[in-house]
Amino acid sequence: MTALVLGTPWGEVPDLLLPALGETALMVGIVMAIVVALGLPLGLLIFNTSPGGLAPNRTVNASISWIANLGRSLPFLVLMAAIIPFTRFVVGTTIGIQAAIIPMSLAGIAFFARLVENAVREIPPELLDVGLATGGSRWQIVRSIQLVEALPALAAALTLNVIAMIEYSAIAGAIGAGGLGYLAVNYGYQQFDDNIMISCIVLLVVLVQVIQFTGDRVVRVLSH
């Protein structure tokens, strides 16, 4: 088994790498869709129930804030292990991409909710007054002022979140979730396949750089 010692020949690396990249993209894509769908409203709710928000409510704010903190207080690996029963209940399995999506989404939602809250908090408070004074309903103000003015900050938050999810997807590789993390751990680490290890590292670094660069560009275009 020379391959074990020498590593996968370079010519065969893309055959392993590209499907793994596809799996990572799929995992992160699905998770981000869930994260935005649930984390955005949650973040808006946290801000708007806080004292400077449109519907201050101490009890509601404290409760959802506590839940969001819970999702962020555990290291991802611990969270993943801790919610295995829940994961099995929801998707019926504890390994593979489906199983990884559950803990990734939970951690991602909690993270994104905080980022959204901070982004909306940056909006000058007078702008909410403008909305109220000109006869806007709270829902209209959320859509026409909060989401519009916070858009650059939300794009930055999204970038940060995607990168965090790529990192989590690599950790989820440990439970056989597939993707670049799985490849790096199984071939690179456990089978001492240096070629795969190096390729995975380079690909992850390039991926993160490209996403950050693109995100920064988008933020610049959105800010006037």
């Binding site: 007078e126 403008v130 002022i145």
Partner: peptide
């Protein structure tokens, strides 16, 4: 009631 705010308070975007 129309309101003109200090420093205009326009939406930047």
């Amino acid at each position: 009631i129309g309101t003109v705010f200090q420093s205009a308070s326009l939406l930047r975007r």
